[in-house]
Write a protein that binds this DNA or RNA. Sequence first.
DNA 1: AGGATTGTATTACGATGATCATATAAAGCT
DNA 2: AGCTTTATATGATCATCGTAATACAATCCT
Lengths: 208, 208
Amino acid sequence: MRYADHHKDETHKALLKAAATVLREKGPDRLGVAEVMRAAGLTHGGFYAHFKSKEALLTETLAVIFAKSKRRVHRMVEGLPPRHALATYIDFYVGQAHRDDAANGCPITALNSDMPRQPKKFRAAFEAGVRSLSDTLAGWMREAGIADAERLAPPILAAMAGAVSLSRTISDRELSDELLASTRTGIKARLGLTDLNLAGEIRLVSSQ
Amino acid sequence: MRYADHHKDETHKALLKAAATVLREKGPDRLGVAEVMRAAGLTHGGFYAHFKSKEALLTETLAVIFAKSKRRVHRMVEGLPPRHALATYIDFYVGQAHRDDAANGCPITALNSDMPRQPKKFRAAFEAGVRSLSDTLAGWMREAGIADAERLAPPILAAMAGAVSLSRTISDRELSDELLASTRTGIKARLGLTDLNLAGEIRLVSSQ
DNA sequence: AGGATTGTATTACGATGATCATATAAAGCT
DNA sequence: AGCTTTATATGATCATCGTAATACAATCCT
């Protein structure tokens, strides 16, 4: 049947939204075209009216995820001085809520070790997201007067993502919590943010 | 046909060895039973005479990899004082050679983000390996007189693994190298190892 | 030497998954 | 009202993969 003019656009967005969750939950290999269609209330056949391939879906999905993440980050630290922005973001990123919600979290933590095995375009989308996030961190660090911000941002991001990834594979809850806490304090110490006490200051921002 | 008595054991080991490479190259989902058999010069049919399932192969393979890694690590730092052992291992782990040889490298860097999606037994084998490596690091740190060694080791390991993983997804070689270098100096600084200059001291140890 | 044993090959089955051709039915236009 | 358009459904194809049953042939043992 024919649908109203805007239906295709809406379906396209719905597919991306469904894929965004599934991609981070199951990874690119275990995400199935049929599953994404089903999640949007459709059957698998029509998929290729929306995306020319599974790879195209994955690539577009990743771009959407990173873009949405970026907006969320900026809302989270809006109006905060750079040092507070840094500390706030670190506490969020290396936090239990993020660990426990991979489906809505940062793709770096959910997909990092998959990337070397993925097709070029998909990897490129990932890399663009990594760079953008790293640049955001570097910007805050520079504004906060931290030396060598550009050089320091990537290892810091890697340390944060590594900790969250590892915390998800550790089944001992207490050990996992401690890994996160210890990573937060370690990184904030390295950035000279130990004087900040953000307890109660962390803003909850809707994941939309 | 019937083979000499020891043939089955040898084949079993050959399968594990083949799987050890493929697992880290392609990940658990893209590793195929037939591919592993082919790598050992056999056809896929006989697989279930050696392993009761693909999962069993993966679990056993991971245990073998971690055990071999452990032996290699101890050979690498044999006889070194703890601070040198730490610095040596950090330089190796967060190094270009390790980044460029995922197939023979640490499974944490190659498989971390796959783990939350894997079956329990496989995950357990991974976790045991992580714990063992973390304990080794903590041991060196304690002997080196570093405070809070047990609490510090997991975040350090996570930071190292995160950096190596991320360095593999960054296509810009220079940026990738810099991420590694910057991670090494950052971690060694945190552990108070900046006075050590190991240039030329790093021992090359065969990957066997 | 000859029969029992056994590691591997052959072959097949069933499931899953990506992709695509065709059908359908309702919306929009004339 | 009827014709055209088009987003989605149906159904099929082809490949891959995990698993398993059966066949075979050479070694080991008696």
